[in-house]
Design a protein around this nucleic acid. Structure first.
Length: 109
DNA sequence: CGTATGACGAGCC
DNA sequence: AGGCTCGCCATAC
């Protein structure tokens, strides 16, 4: 695991509370990458199966599942209480997470 | 070290 | 309105 940067992605994703979702772009911005949404997807793709990272809580900006096989992701989200529309879309106004406070990464002095 | 890739996003035609 | 292209970032090769 080379990911010093990947680890940051994982740490940020782990902060997303249950029954909430965030977009790739959002996560990227938390890490300081205004246009690094693709990198977030890359990091999540590299994620092992038994990881403690709630990767399923990350969707694209439209509130849809980008993953080709998003079936499992949708099941995981629905199990948490996230509702999907008929077209498989999530209402980000309801389930979207504002993000962590700006000091989440700061140390205790 | 340069090129290619990817679970995105926003802009342009 | 909808589809296509380019941009952007960090890895992989």
């Amino acid at each position: 695991m080379t990911g010093t940067e990947f680890e940051r992605v994982y740490r940020a994703v782990r902060l997303i509370p249950q029954a909430k979702v965030a977009t790739y772009g959002q996560v990227a911005r938390w890490l300081g990458w205004q246009h690094g949404a693709r990198t977030v997807g890359w990091a999540l793709r590299a994620l092992p199966e038994g990881s403690d990272v709630p990767w399923h809580r990350v969707v694209n900006a439209r509130g849809c599942i980008s993953l080709a096989d998003g079936e499992r992701q949708q099941i995981l989200l629905e199990a948490e209480g996230v509702a999907f529309s008929e077209s498989g879309r999530i209402d980000l106004r309801v389930y979207g997470w504002a993000g962590p406070p700006p000091w989440w990464e700061a140390d205790c002095l």
